[in-house]
């Protein structure tokens, strides 16, 4: 599998990263060299292997379903590039 410039543009769009047209060729080359290299995993027959779901065998812990943390509107919005009255401000999304 190898990626062409259109695929790079598509991935960049999915990742929400603006990429200039003149960067596409270089990026495609870089991504392909990494993807070609990881292709070697294809040498392994993994049809009977379960994928790892946890690096350490543990059972997921449960806790009471109750609020333990909250009412931090000021702290939560303090680092926002734009906020007003405890809300985040974003560019207009509805016409």
């Amino acid at each position: 599998m190898s990626v062409d410039q259109n695929t790079v543009r598509h991935i960049a769009r999915l990742a929400r990263i603006a990429v200039r047209d003149d960067e596409l060729e270089h990026l495609a080359k870089e991504l392909n060299s990494i993807l070609d290299w990881v292709e070697q995993l294809g040498e392994l027959d993994t049809s009977d292997v379960e994928p790892m779901t946890s690096a350490v065998e543990t059972t997921m812990k449960m806790r009471e379903d109750e609020v333990t943390f909250g009412n931090l509107q000021d702290e939560v919005t303090r680092n926002a590039p734009a906020s007003e009255d405890g809300f985040y401000v974003v560019p207009k999304v509805v016409e």
Partner: peptide
């Protein structure tokens, strides 16, 4: 499946 799932299977083999 081709990439992430495959890699997680290889991870099981390594473990």
């Amino acid at each position: 499946d081709a990439y992430y799932l495959k890699a997680q299977k290889v991870r099981s083999l390594i473990a």
